[in-house]
């Protein structure tokens, strides 16, 4: 039985009748396996995504708002600061399709320019939360023990603060509500407040994902081969555990755009002269019955932007979640 591949004993008895063929290895196998090249998680997800209208709608929305944030002049040539007090709260007219606001400024132009700060705050806050939460989660999940306990309790402390409440207190502490203040500092504080209050959720998700990945054989193998902690975390665990975090961060980007608007609306976040959807909605709230366009237009911009990112996150989630296949 020296040839393990063939039924050696069979050959002994059958050789005279059937000249045995050289054994058919995989190279001669019929094209059974040809079209099933191994698909990874992400290429598999991409295959799914391409077929989803949801994905393309969200990408379109995101591209439009990105362009709006970077090059607002592509969308409007009206100066968002120019005002004409005689037209205050006036409805739409030619050249000003969405009418005027309280100071007689063009609502459409202000809505276009409002994209910039919302996208900026949302993007930076989402990246920050992804980084801080992701790092805390991977460290807690990988090392476990007292490091995990301490990080989890610290996370709980921030998690214990209801978001809006915590944000109001934080922002009121660091930005004097009675003064208008330096716009850059205000943006930074708003971003930091969002990050500080949101990272524990991201850390939790990352932590459980890392714990699940840590058990897998290839991680055990890497450890057995003497790979260092950092190498195992970065090379082996991170790429395999990060997908839930990516989905969450994408959705969070949209949610944070809404959060920024909410805080500005409450008067604790951004404030004039920064142009923001939240401020515009806040200004318009008492005029809802006489000039609904003042509220509805920035609200529509805001919702569409949030929708774009949330939809993208959901589409990706569906595509990479094997449970939903």
């Amino acid at each position: 039985m020296s040839d393990p591949g063939a039924f050696t004993n069979e050959r002994e008895t059958e050789e005279q009748q059937h000249a045995p063929e050289p054994f058919l290895g995989e190279e001669e196998a019929p094209p059974s396996g040809k079209q099933e090249k191994a698909r990874g998680l992400w290429s598999d997800a991409w295959y799914d995504l391409r077929r989803k209208p949801l994905f393309w709608v969200s990408i379109t929305l995101i591209v439009i708002f990105m362009l709006m944030a970077l090059f607002p002049s592509l969308f409007t040539s009206t100066d968002p600061y120019a005002f004409d007090l005689s037209k205050r709260t006036d409805g739409p007219e030619s050249g000003h399709i969405f009418g005027y606001d309280l100071q007689g400024r063009d609502v459409y132009a202000r809505s276009v320019y409002g994209a910039q700060v919302s996208i900026l705050v949302g993007l930076v806050a989402a990246l920050g939360v992804g980084l801080v939460g992701g790092a805390a989660g991977i460290i807690a999940g990988y090392y476990g023990g007292w490091i995990d306990a301490v990080l989890s309790r610290i996370g709980d402390v921030f998690f214990g603060l209801p978001f809006v409440l915590g944000a109001i207190v934080l922002l009121s502490t660091f930005i004097d509500p009675t003064k208008s203040g330096d716009p850059t500092k205000i943006k930074v504080v708003v971003i930091l407040a969002i990050v500080v209050l949101s990272w524990p959720q991201f850390a939790r998700v990352m932590r459980s994902s890392v714990i699940a990945t840590k058990q897998s054989d290839y991680v055990q193998a890497a450890r057995a081969l003497g790979a260092g902690h950092t190498r195992i975390m970065v090379r082996h665990i991170l790429p395999n555990a990060i997908s839930p975090l990516i989905v969450m961060t994408t959705i969070a980007l949209g949610v944070f755009v809404g959060v920024e608007a909410t805080l500005s609306f409450l008067g604790v976040g951004l404030r004039p002269p920064i142009i923001s959807w939240g401020i515009a909605i806040s200004d318009a709230q008492t005029y809802l019955d006489i000039a609904p366009h003042m509220l509805l237009v920035p609200a529509a911009f805001l919702s569409a932007a949030v929708l774009g990112f949330v939809m993208l996150g959901e589409a990706v989630r569906e595509a990479i979640d094997p449970k939903l296949k």
């Binding site: 591949g5 058919l24 290895g25 995989e26 196998a29 019929p30 094209p31 059974s32 396996g33 099933e36």
Partner: peptide
């Protein structure tokens, strides 16, 4: 030797 055939092919 080899693997069970793919039922697609």
């Amino acid at each position: 030797k080899g693997l069970p055939p793919s039922l697609l092919h």
